[in-house]
Design a protein around this nucleic acid. Structure first.
Length: 665
DNA sequence: CCGTACAATGTTTTT
DNA sequence: CATTGTACGG
């Protein structure tokens, strides 16, 4: 059954004098920009100038004489944050100094400053997903020696359970019963492991992504001095993509703003796609209930897409079981009908996308104004191979992060030890890189080091097989600790690591080699280990982009992206690929209406990224390993669209786009 | 106990 | 397909 809600819009503050530079805003945008103070919410559909409104808002505050350092601009993803800050500073020079970033990076700074109240020094270590998994694995082996490994959930699964528990507040038992019933009998050890993991992080000054938010929330909630300090510091708080904040993030900003604070939140319930992280789009629309005096602004005029694309978007959303009433419209009525392409198989799908992209480039649409979007990072693997074969430069967003690759983690481990010599997992990694040291010896050595710190006397108590090498390692680390010059340390680190690297990744080290240079290149931008490591954990995208890929490319690259990572961005032409039932919507969501709705919103996000051209593509058949069968059905989200909204192209096996494929076979 | 070679296994999305 | 578990020789 469909549930449709309507929302009442309260008038914002009226102002008679509208500055000239705001002439290109519509009345609703102007009202939001010039909102006098107190809580407010902007409900902004896709492409309705949400970012622009926020940027102008900052400019307006500055013009009114609000000090730039009392403005806080929070976003949910790194890309959105970069994008927004760049626009703010392009608009107003002083705007570059606005405090801004993701919730996680902001929390990081707060904890570094005030963490001593809760036992976190300024030099605590941030754990990315892989690090956190290593910790859980280590503890699993320590705490649960009597349990058979094979029947026990893997580290990744464990961490997912923990994270879900913390972000949604659901008890671990509930999560296991509903999503992992095969582990029901292991509830006790899993809960024990969770407690062990929490203790471990506290003891060794570690914080995973969830901790950043929780620790910061705790500081603001439980320590009046911290709360007061932040209340005084940030007088105007703006939050973008608010529909994706989870309860902890919401509590955090609301506490910093205070009950009557100037908190402005912006979002779009239709683009809520982070339920798995505890976000609920209904919280966003509940904002006016929590703040009865909040002003509500609603933006519905779309400036991005041509009407035929919006027709598809509106029709997509109309399929949602639960939604708020909203219809996007535009004054850009002209435009191509979006195209639905049925390709015989995956190869034809790739060939079609590539030849179409090249055609568009011929017509004058640069590669960087085109994007290929997909549900999950792996959907694009085969397309990436083809793009390489055709020498088309591309940048991929989403999926594996540069800083998560094994060889980069190796180098990070050395640096971590310099910052935090008690870091057991980094010791574990670093020690096992010494020839002849395996899990057991590493464990023994760590026990000894826990008492003595980095001290080469330890080597004397150790097997002669690796004594020399261990001494060298410990001496080197000691020397680096003494040496304050960060740049020199990185230099030496690379020299020290290279032989290990070549042996450890003998199979494919030439391919990984350029990453070592990239690592060094990026490190040059930082003056301390701490800031470098925080950056790597919280901001890995710019890393890949600038330094691994196209610094030397003569053409701005095509964008490949997961739909999740594409939110907030726009391109002239957009391809959405692999639109099959089982991929989008994913098989994991088919039996729950709520989850299915979220997949639908995901499709909506994909569609609304396009300005002029939209191509919806699916292969007629695709092999799926896990289920050992074929997906053959196009996504239910496209088959349910009215015919008149789409042009339909059938690629047949005879089409010339496929000649290359045929030759390979 | 370490390192390697091979088989098995299970795969969303992000900070 | 990449990670994780197992078997075996040094």
């Amino acid at each position: 059954m469909q549930k449709v809600y309507t929302l009442r819009t309260l008038p914002g503050s009226k102002s008679s004098e509208i500055p000239d530079w705001m002439a290109d805003l519509n009345p609703q945008q102007q009202a939001a920009v010039m909102h006098s103070g107190g809580p407010s919410v902007i409900i902004a559909g896709a492409g309705t100038g949400k970012t622009k409104t926020l940027v102008y808002r900052v400019a307006w505050l500055l013009e009114k004489g609000i000090p730039v350092n009392s403005i806080l601009l929070l976003t949910f993803t790194r890309k959105a944050s970069e994008h927004m800050l760049a626009r703010v500073s392009a608009f107003n020079q002083a705007g570059g100094q606005v405090t801004g970033g993701t919730f996680h990076s902001f929390s990081n700074l707060v904890i570094r400053e005030f963490g001593h109240h809760i036992g976190y020094g300024a030099n605590f270590t941030i754990l990315d997903k892989g690090d956190a998994q290593d910790r859980v694995d280590l503890l699993r082996n320590q705490l649960l020696q009597n349990l058979p490994k094979t029947r026990f959930p893997k580290k990744g699964t464990l961490l997912d359970i923990f994270s879900s528990h913390r972000n949604t507040g659901r008890p671990i038992e509930d999560i296991i019963n509903s999503e992992y019933p095969q582990f029901q009998h292991l509830l006790d050890p899993i809960e024990k492991l969770f407690t062990g993991y929490q203790d471990h992080k506290k003891r060794y000054s570690l914080a995973d992504y969830d901790d950043l938010l929780f620790l910061c929330r705790d500081l603001v909630r439980d320590h009046e001095s911290v709360r007061t300090a932040l209340n005084k510091r940030f007088k105007y708080i703006l939050v973008d993509e608010y529909q994706d904040t989870n309860p902890v993030q919401a509590e955090l900003v609301e506490r910093i703003a205070g009950p009557d604070g100037n908190l402005m939140v912006v979002g779009d319930d239709a683009q809520s796609i982070y339920k798995f992280r505890g976000a609920d789009f209904k919280n966003f629309l509940g904002f006016p209930e929590r703040y009865p005096n909040a002003a509500v602004f609603k933006l519905e005029e779309n400036y991005r897409s041509v009407q035929p694309i919006l027709d598809v978007a509106n029709s997509v959303m109309s399929q949602a079981a639960e939604k708020f009433e909203k219809t996007l419209f535009t004054k850009k009525p002209e435009g191509q009908l979006p195209v639905l392409i049925t390709a015989p198989d995956e190869n034809y799908q790739n060939q079609f996308i590539i030849s179409r992209i090249l055609d568009l480039r011929e017509e004058g649409i640069p590669l960087s104004q085109q994007a290929v979007l997909f549900r999950s990072a792996r959907n694009s693997y085969s397309l990436e191979l083809e793009l390489n074969a055709n020498h088309i430069p591309f940048e991929k967003r989403g999926g594996n992060k540069f800083a998560e690759s094994a060889h980069i983690k190796d180098m990070i481990s050395y640096l971590r030890l310099l910052m935090n010599p008690k870091d057991v997992v980094s010791w574990n990694r670093v020690l096992q890189m010494v020839d002849g040291i395996g899990p057991k010896s590493a464990d023994d050595i760590i026990r000894m080091l826990e008492e003595s710190g980095i001290d080469n006397r330890v080597s004397e108590m150790v097997s002669p097989r690796y004594r020399t090498q261990l001494t060298l390692l410990l001496d080197t680390l000691t020397a680096w600790t003494a040496d304050k010059e960060f740049k020199a340390i990185v230099d030496e680190l690379i020299r020290f690591y290279r032989p290990v690297f070549e042996k450890r990744y003998f199979e494919d080290y030439p391919k990984r080699e350029k990453d070592l240079d990239a690592f060094q290149a990026v490190s040059l931008k930082f003056s301390s280990i701490e800031s470098f490591l925080s950056h790597l954990a919280l901001d890995p995208v710019s890393f890949t982009q600038e330094d691994t890929l196209g610094t030397h490319a003569d053409e701005a690259p095509l964008i490949l992206s997961t739909i999740h990572s594409s939110k907030g961005l726009e391109w002239h032409s957009v391809f959405v690929m692999d639109l099959l039932d089982g991929i989008l919507p994913s098989t994991f969501t088919l039996d729950k209406t709520e989850d299915l709705d979220e997949e639908l919103r995901l499709f909506y996000v994909a569609v609304t990224r396009a300005k002029e051209n939209l191509y919806l593509v699916y292969p007629g058949i695709q092999f799926h390993r896990q289920f050992n069968n074929y997906f053959t059905k196009p996504s239910r989200f496209i088959t349910s669209l009215p015919d008149r909204l789409l042009e339909k192209w059938m690629l047949s096996a005879a089409d010339d786009a496929s000649t290359e494929t045929k030759q390979i076979e």
